[in-house]
Amino acid sequence: MTDINVSHSDDLKTVTVPNLKKDRPKKEHYFLIAPGVLWMVLFLVIPLAMMVYVSFWTQTTFAVNPTLTTKSWITFFSSETYMDALFRTGRLWLTVLVLTFVIGYPVALFVGQLVRSETLRTILLVTCVIPFWTSFLIRVLAWRPMLGKEGAVNIILQKVGLISTPIEVLLFTEVSVVIGLVQIYVVFMVGPIAFMLSRIDHSLLEAARDLGASTWTIFRKIIFPLSLPGVAVGAIFVSVMVLGEFATPAALSGRKVNLLGNIIVTQVGSLKWAFAAVVGVVLTLVMALVITALLRIVNLRKEL
């Protein structure tokens, strides 16, 4: 800490105040971030390192030993079945991501911009979350009687005359998996976007109207760009959860649609820990690439 220097003159007194920020020991900064770093190391870095390490173990029929080998990796990338599961996971993820955005953005736009009452806005957002008050499996399995050949969807479509025979593709296919995933995770797209839209100053929109901007121009140049951080956050939420899914595909596809998550569950159940670790590492890399790409599109640290 610097000393306080006081100089006297006939009509002026100068006091030099110590710069506390500059003189503060830098060790305090490390103590502040230490708990977060410790948490990340214990529950993220070490588990990931262990998963990578186990993926190189030698896998026997019902056991593994720590002899390092690349056999499990070669098996994964040389198998058409596992590569199909990888591409299917990516395809379903992209489909669900697009659909949750297409469905969720208009809902978020209504809640975040058109609803001015904070109380009503809160009620609407809570209404979106109400399905999460029930069991995840119940919400997934509830789609079976809805999408079956004699389910509610086919009955309604036949009653209104849109179809003459039941649509069989609605259940135990990729279509049913997409429907279930979109219904479950669309709320994770609505919430962040609605939050960002509610932060937009309405005087900014009024100024744009006064300058002659059309509704479409206001949306394209003001509303949508300002909501992009919410879109990015919602996309990250949806991506992480969809890429790791295994229960919804198993329940709604009759185990006909296998994603990477389903393969991990199957391999763990068969005590094939090394191969399960390989799939886990691949899935983690896919998630990391997706999140990195989304963060490159929108700089959340700068926008938020």
Rank of each mutant, 00 (worst) to 15 (best):
A232M: 12
T61A: 15
V231I: 05
A250G: 11
E150L: 10
L259H: 00
T75A: 11
F246R: 00
T292G: 12
R116E: 11
A152L: 15
N65C: 12
V54Y: 00
S203L: 12
V281S: 02
V190D: 02
L92Q: 04
G104A: 06
G244K: 04
L97P: 01
G261L: 00
A152E: 14
F76E: 00
R24Q: 09
S72C: 08
V279R: 00
A276D: 02
A213I: 07
R255E: 06
N262K: 02
T173K: 04
I46C: 03
T14F: 13
T60I: 15
L109R: 12
L259C: 01
L211I: 09
L294I: 05
G254V: 05
L204W: 08
V54Q: 01
N258P: 03
T67W: 12
F275N: 05
V102P: 03
S203R: 15
E174L: 07
S7N: 14
P18Y: 13
P166R: 04
I130C: 10
L48G: 06
V64A: 15
I200F: 03
I163N: 14
V242G: 01
I184L: 14
E206Y: 07
D10T: 12
I123Q: 10
V278Y: 00
I156C: 13
P192K: 03
L114H: 14
W57G: 01
D10A: 15
A235E: 06
V182F: 11
I33E: 10
H29D: 13
M1E: 10
L289Y: 14
V98D: 08
V102R: 06
V160C: 13
P35N: 14
N299E: 04
T217P: 05
Y105I: 04
L141D: 04
V111I: 11
N154R: 06
T165Y: 14
A85P: 09
F237N: 02
F219K: 07
R296A: 08
L99Q: 11
W57F: 12
L92R: 02
V37K: 10
T173F: 03
W57E: 02
N258Y: 03
W273N: 08
F31N: 11
D10W: 13
T61C: 09
F246C: 00
L285V: 15
T89E: 01
I297M: 10
T173N: 06
